[in-house]
């Protein structure tokens, strides 16, 4: 902090430091902000200055066609993958916190590994495997693949929530006659719900943004929104992409707000 006695060099350093941080923050935010106005541009070029206001690009993406189709596909796959990840992930996190058992650290490392494994390797592996078992080019295959990629987030967030959970409550519940299922749904779940939902939102965002695995295992029928974005960017980058990007940014804002609210409610995440 600047004090009356700080030297001149320190003052310069202080402001240079703040300027640098300001530039980094602009760098982070600029791309997110710059694409929004372009989605309302009446010209078909993605350049500034804007030539006029128009809703036409939103009409393009919301009229029947590849954009709407891919949005629909993503809205089928992402919630199902999220649900699967939430169920498996929550059960596992509760198990991890119940007792020590041999191989626990190894299992944890295994469960987190989809987060760091190079996506192309996951994609190629699943491509061959799904081809053998008939899951290639199917919604079920995509759901299973995205559930694998989303599950580490659920395990991590639920695990963090459980750190502050007093397990004596479970004993108390059991001693008052509740069976383990009742204990879970009436005592444990309400308290860890913020963590479960946060993890679910992370898993949802992962599925909604996943393109590499989907490129390998989905046919044009299951083409998800990220694939449509990918081919759009690669072939001809039009303001329709900016319009869809704007909608996706709005969704990110929403997800961020919900996760932050949940975090405020349970400080442990």
């Amino acid at each position: 902090m600047i004090q009356p006695y700080t030297s001149r060099l320190e003052r310069i350093w202080f402001w240079a430091f703040r300027l640098f941080c300001g530039l980094v923050l602009i760098f982070l935010m600029l791309p997110v902000l710059v694409i929004i106005p372009l989605s309302f541009n009446s010209s078909s070029f993605l350049t500034y200055p804007l030539s006029g206001f128009s809703w036409q690009w939103y009409e393009t993406i919301f009229s029947p066609g590849p954009w709407l189709e891919s949005l629909k596909n993503s809205l089928i796959v992402a919630p199902l993958a999220t649900l699967l990840a939430m169920i498996f992930g929550t059960l596992a996190a509760v198990g991890f916190n119940r007792a020590e058992f041999p191989g626990k650290n190894l299992l944890m490392a295994l469960i987190i590994s989809p987060m760091v494994a190079p996506l192309v390797i996951v994609a190629v592996g699943m491509y061959f495997f799904f081809a053998q078992v008939g899951l290639l080019n199917s919604y079920l295959g995509l759901v299973l693949a995205h559930a694998v990629l989303g599950v580490p987030f659920v395990v991590i967030t639920v695990n963090a929530t459980l750190q502050g959970f007093d397990t004596n409550q479970m004993r108390a519940g059991a001693s008052l006659g509740a069976n383990p299922v009742q204990v879970f749904f009436d005592i444990v779940l309400p308290q860890i719900l913020p963590g479960v939902i946060s993890g679910g939102l992370f898993a949802f965002a992962t599925s909604f943004d996943e393109v590499v695995v989907a490129l390998f295992i989905a046919s044009p029928t299951e083409r998800t929104l990220p694939i449509q974005m990918f081919s759009g960017i690669r072939e001809n980058i039009s303001p329709a992409i900016a319009a869809m990007a704007t909608i996706m940014i709005l969704m990110s804002v929403l997800l961020l707000l919900v996760v932050e609210l949940l975090r405020r409610r349970s400080v442990r995440i």
Partner: peptide
């Protein structure tokens, strides 16, 4: 939280 593809396009 913003999609990787959105940022790439941007």
């Amino acid at each position: 939280w913003t999609s990787l593809l959105v940022r790439t396009a941007a």
